[in-house]
């Protein structure tokens, strides 16, 4: 019997501290995945906590055909679908990349390295935000959570073939978005260079003034 199974049995026997063990074991992983799917710390905490609460209430119905983690994720992603739709109606889905603030920081990292890493991450976040929700969920489960196709299929309740094709499309779309972002950056950099070679407004005013004096 694995740890989870033991904790589940203990919880069902009335030992609620055992469920606290499951919460402690999975909250970080669940939060991290949900954060990257929802793009918001608040949403990730809300959905994650709600999923754990529902898992607790429905624990007796868990048949252990899948792992507890897969079951928990299925609840969480179903909740997210519901949550997301409600929020859309309320027009409060304004995503805030400011939310993405409390990431763990490597103490040995220099300021320049950190800035570069943050820029890269910001570009990836922006590209992720352009993906369809379904594509983003699959991508996060695969690349961030390291789920195998079979587990993704169980969590999202999709056929294996659909997982495979959507994952590939998600990667292609993300690659395309990152490429566009890179091109945009290059164009902006060129514009900045050109702008720096143009006369400033002060210089232009001085030239215009001299021209008027010459005319008069």
């Amino acid at each position: 019997m694995n740890d989870d199974s033991q904790l589940i049995d203990q919880t069902l026997q009335g030992d609620s501290t055992a469920f606290a063990g499951l919460v402690g074991k999975y909250q970080l992983r669940l939060f991290n995945s949900l954060f990257h799917v929802t793009g918001s710390r608040e949403d990730a905490e809300d959905v994650g906590q709600e999923a754990l609460a529902q898992a607790y209430l429905k624990l007796a119905s868990f048949q252990k055909k899948s792992t507890f983690y897969t079951w928990l994720y299925r609840i969480a992603f179903n909740l997210w679908v519901s949550h997301r739709r409600k929020r859309r109606v309320e027009n409060v889905l304004a995503q805030s990349r400011e939310d993405r603030g409390n990431e763990a920081v490597d103490p040995g990292e220099g300021p320049a390295e950190r800035m570069l890493r943050e820029e890269r991450a910001a570009a990836v976040y922006a590209a992720l935000d352009t993906l369809d929700d379904d594509y983003r969920a699959i991508l996060v489960l695969r690349e961030i959570d390291g789920c195998r196709y079979e587990r993704i299929s169980e969590i999202l309740e999709l056929p294996l073939g659909t997982v495979r094709s959507r994952l590939h499309r998600a990667r292609c779309q993300l690659a395309h978005q990152l490429q566009l972002a890179h091109q945009l950056q290059e164009v902006q950099a060129e514009n900045l260079t050109e702008a720096s070679q143009r006369p400033t407004e002060t210089e232009a005013s001085a030239v215009r003034e001299r021209a008027r004096e010459t005319t008069h």
């Binding site: 606290a20 919460v23 402690g24 909250q27 970080l28 939060f31 991290n32 954060f35 990257h36 710390r41 990730a44 905490e45 994650g48 906590q49 754990l52 993405r100 409390n102 990431e103 763990a104 890493r117 890269r120 991450a121 990836v124 976040y125 992720l128 991508l139 996060v140 690349e143 961030i144 990667r171 993300l174 690659a175 990152l178």
Partner: peptide, 19 residues
């Protein structure tokens, strides 16, 4: 490259224990 970029995203932790 895409895989690598997503995998390299920083791990984020919740601000509190959820229990």
């Amino acid at each position: 490259a895409v895989r690598h970029a997503v995998q390299e995203l920083p791990t984020v932790e919740p601000t509190t224990d959820w229990t």
